Simulated assay, not measured.
Amino acid sequence: MESGAIRRRLTLGPVLLAAAGLLAFAAAGTAQAAPSSCSGEQVRTLSFASGVTRVYRQGDYICAMTLARSPGIVRAMSVSVQARGSRPAKDNGRFLHHAGPVTVHAGHRCVWIRGAVGQNSVSSGWILC
Rank of each mutant, 00 (worst) to 15 (best):
G21L: 07
L96Y: 10
G72L: 02
G118I: 01
G40S: 08
R8V: 15
P35G: 11
S37H: 10
R69I: 08
Q32S: 13
A64M: 04
V55S: 01
S36G: 15
I6W: 09
L128Y: 04
G118L: 02
A31P: 01
G85D: 07
R114Q: 08
R87T: 15
I113P: 00
S47R: 12
R8T: 12
W126D: 05
T45S: 10
A18P: 10
I127W: 06
Q42D: 02
H97C: 14
Q82P: 05
I73V: 14
E41V: 08
M77H: 02
R7C: 15
A20Y: 06
I113T: 03
A83E: 04
R44Q: 07
T30P: 03
L128K: 07
L12A: 14
I73R: 12
N92R: 04
M1F: 14
V122D: 01
S86T: 07
S124R: 07
V52C: 00
G107H: 05
A106L: 09
R109N: 10
Q42M: 05
I6G: 02
A19P: 01
S3W: 13
T66C: 05
Q32I: 08
Q119V: 08
T53I: 03
S39Q: 13
A64V: 02
G40K: 03
Q119L: 11
M1S: 11
M65W: 05
G115V: 04
V117Q: 00
F48N: 01
L46G: 02
R9P: 12
S70I: 05
I113W: 00
C129Y: 09
S80D: 04
L22G: 11
V52P: 00
I113Y: 00
L22W: 07
V52K: 00
Y56H: 10
S36L: 15
L23A: 10
H97I: 13
Q82S: 11
E2I: 11
T45D: 03
A83Y: 01
L67D: 01
P88A: 10
A5W: 15
A24Y: 09
T53Y: 00
M77L: 09
C110D: 09
R9G: 14
V102F: 02
G29H: 04
F95W: 03
A5T: 15
A19R: 06
V79P: 00
M65Y: 06
C63E: 03
G4K: 15
A24E: 12
G13R: 12
W126I: 06
G125Y: 06
A33Y: 12
V111S: 03
S50Q: 07
A28E: 11
L16K: 08
S3M: 11
V81L: 05
L96E: 15
D91H: 04
S86Q: 09
G72Y: 02
R114G: 04
H98D: 13
D60K: 14
A64F: 01
I62C: 01
S123I: 07
G93L: 05
A33H: 14
G100A: 08
A76V: 14
T66D: 03
R7V: 14
V104G: 02
R75S: 10
G125L: 03
V74E: 12
